[in-house]
């Protein structure tokens, strides 16, 4: 039984890692506390629903179209909202509140068109296969495999490509980067695209398993942010480790206490970290928090 819970935790953790990494891509480089990221995660499944269930396009193609539309939404946010604010040198609080504004608008627009109730993408009960005592559904396996592959590709890319070097440079100091002639806004476009892809894939995979409503984004965002903080802000490996830790821990708390206290466990962990190790597991100590 315990092993089953740990495996479940790892699978959930791989999704957390993916979503959290998408958040980190934007947060580490631009310092935008991208709350509206939550709606990207929720938006993609609704697009899948439109193309797959309503228009009858095969699921795989529908998924890709949905990801593309999510990317467009993300870029609109950057171009219409964040970029002018960044050019005005607005404070991070103002950007964060604007982000809350975007989130409210998108959630409610979706709710207007699709309704507030839970929708499902996959009406069948998914098939399972067992592995000794452990039971895994195929969709869970897909979640784990797809997210792990994406995570690995991204990390390799970050380490060895020119783009990766630029991203890490921007994390360290974006003003200096623009002094050296890097086009910051072009970089931001790429970063927002990547983060939207991560959110969309995570959202699509989870929704295919358990369905969605317009409000699924926020809890996921919170888990992603906690994963980022536990891992350590500023490093791109960190949210991955944090994601797996949270996934396993939540799963264990279901096993040990009850599913209802999952969130309380997560956020107690967050507050413990904020108090005693605000730089996270991998972060370096900085004086000004």
């Amino acid at each position: 039984m315990l092993l089953q819970f740990i495996i479940n935790g790892i699978i959930v953790g791989s999704i957390y890692s993916l979503v959290s990494l998408g958040f980190a891509i934007v947060y580490n480089t631009t310092r935008i506390f991208h709350i509206a990221y939550a709606v990207l995660y929720m938006f993609c499944p609704y697009m899948i629903l439109t193309f797959f269930s309503n228009l009858g396009i095969p699921i795989f193609i529908a998924f890709i179209i949905a990801i593309l539309i999510t990317v467009v939404l993300s870029l609109l946010m950057e171009i219409i909202i964040y970029r002018p604010l960044a050019k005005k040198n607005s404070s991070l609080n103002i950007i964060m509140i604007s982000s809350i504004g975007i989130m409210i608008i998108v959630i409610n627009t979706i709710a207007l068109f699709y309704g507030n109730e839970t929708k499902i993408l996959n009406p069948d009960i998914s098939e399972t296969f067992s592995f000794g005592d452990i039971i895994i559904t195929y969709i869970q396996l897909a979640q784990f495999v797809i997210s792990t592959i994406i995570l690995l590709i991204f990390l390799a890319f970050l380490k060895f490509s020119k783009f990766g070097i630029r991203t890490r440079a921007m994390r360290d100091d974006d003003i200096l980067c623009s002094v050296f002639g890097m086009d910051i806004y072009k970089m931001r476009i790429i970063l927002f695209t990547l983060s939207a892809i991560f959110a969309a894939i995570g959202g699509g995979l989870v929704a295919y398993d358990v369905g969605m409503d317009p409000y699924v984004g926020m809890p996921m965002l919170l888990n992603a942010v906690v994963a980022l903080i536990i891992g350590g802000i500023g490093r791109f490996e960190a949210p991955i480790i944090g994601g797996f830790i949270i996934g396993i821990l939540q799963s264990l708390s279901v096993w040990a206490i009850s599913a209802r206290w999952q969130d309380a466990v997560t956020f107690t962990l967050l507050i413990l970290f904020l108090l005693f190790r605000p730089q996270g597991l991998l972060g370096e100590k900085k004086r000004a928090v």
Partner: peptide
């Protein structure tokens, strides 16, 4: 809610 959201964004800008 949409009106609140719009107002927040416009005001922040």
């Amino acid at each position: 809610q949409i009106i609140y959201g719009l107002m927040i964004i416009i005001l922040m800008r």
